[in-house]
């Protein structure tokens, strides 16, 4: 059913562009976008690779860092009282606006883009992991306490497994935010990457190339999200 809708939509688009003689720089027909993608496939791929890699690295940093910080914040009331409001504050503000600051402070290298994207993706992981770590049933904790379990045992054998579904819902948000972070950083600072390619193509009024790059981004985004969802499925089979 959605496939039919898409087909009709693309057909209508193609027809309208030809029928009304819309210039290519304004709105190229789908067939031309495909053509452009075929002819520039190699540069598209060269630029897709750094974007994908930086997204994955920043996602991993955000996930590991987020889980560790969530553990630290739930382990003591003092830590929680001091830092949790700050985490919520950062979760709520539009972090994209801080992108230029990252460039000013850290230059225009790949590291800057990874750090900014990790910063974008980090907070949802912290918040959902904290919710997960707090969701452990009280009786399970009392059982461990009664067995004189160490805090590390309680964390790894009970609290972390109970938090798995929460952590993955945070990770699913994080992977999309990491990608947005990388693209935005590429818009303003990059010398390569699909975000850079989009900015470059728009300066040339090459709308077909912009659309081709967006198409590749969508594909990458879907695959990365799919990988996280696959990981979630495997973890849920193991832990739920």
């Amino acid at each position: 059913m959605p496939l039919m809708v898409v087909t009709v939509f693309l057909g209508g688009w193609e027809f309208t562009v030809h029928h009304m003689d819309i210039p290519r720089s304004l709105l190229p027909a789908p067939s031309y976008v495909y053509e452009r993608m075929r002819t520039t496939f190699s540069p598209l791929m060269t630029n897709a690779w750094p974007t994908t890699l930086e997204t994955m690295v920043s996602f991993l940093i955000a996930t590991v860092g987020g889980v560790v910080l969530a553990l630290a914040l739930t382990s003591s009331t003092l830590m929680n009282a001091s830092f949790y409001p700050i985490v919520v504050f950062f979760q709520l503000i539009p972090k994209i606006a801080l992108a230029p600051l990252f460039v000013v402070w850290m230059g225009i290298g790949s590291t800057t883009r990874i750090e900014f994207a990790a910063f974008m993706a980090f907070f949802p992981v912290v918040i959902s992991t904290m919710a997960g770590l707090r969701a452990t049933p009280g009786d399970a904790l009392r059982l461990c306490q009664g067995l004189t379990a160490t805090p590390w045992q309680v964390f790894f054998l009970v609290r972390l497994p109970y938090a798995v579904p929460y952590i993955f819902s945070g990770m699913k948000i994080a992977i999309t935010l990491a990608m947005i972070g990388v693209i935005v950083a590429e818009f303003i600072s990059a010398e390569r990457g699909l975000g850079y390619l989009i900015v470059f193509a728009s300066s040339q009024a090459d709308t077909a190339l912009i659309l081709a790059a967006i198409l590749i981004l969508c594909a990458i985004g879907l695959v990365l999200y799919g990988l996280v969802a696959l990981g979630e499925w495997l973890a849920m089979r193991r832990y739920c």
Binding site: P137, D139, A140, R142, L143, Q145, G146, L147, V158, C240
Partner: peptide
């Protein structure tokens, strides 16, 4: 003065670990 391992505990809920 605290919990010790030679006490068996059973709660109202079975409190099994689901995984």
């Amino acid at each position: 003065t605290g919990p010790r391992e030679d006490v068996g505990l059973i709660f109202q809920d079975a409190t099994l670990l689901p995984w």
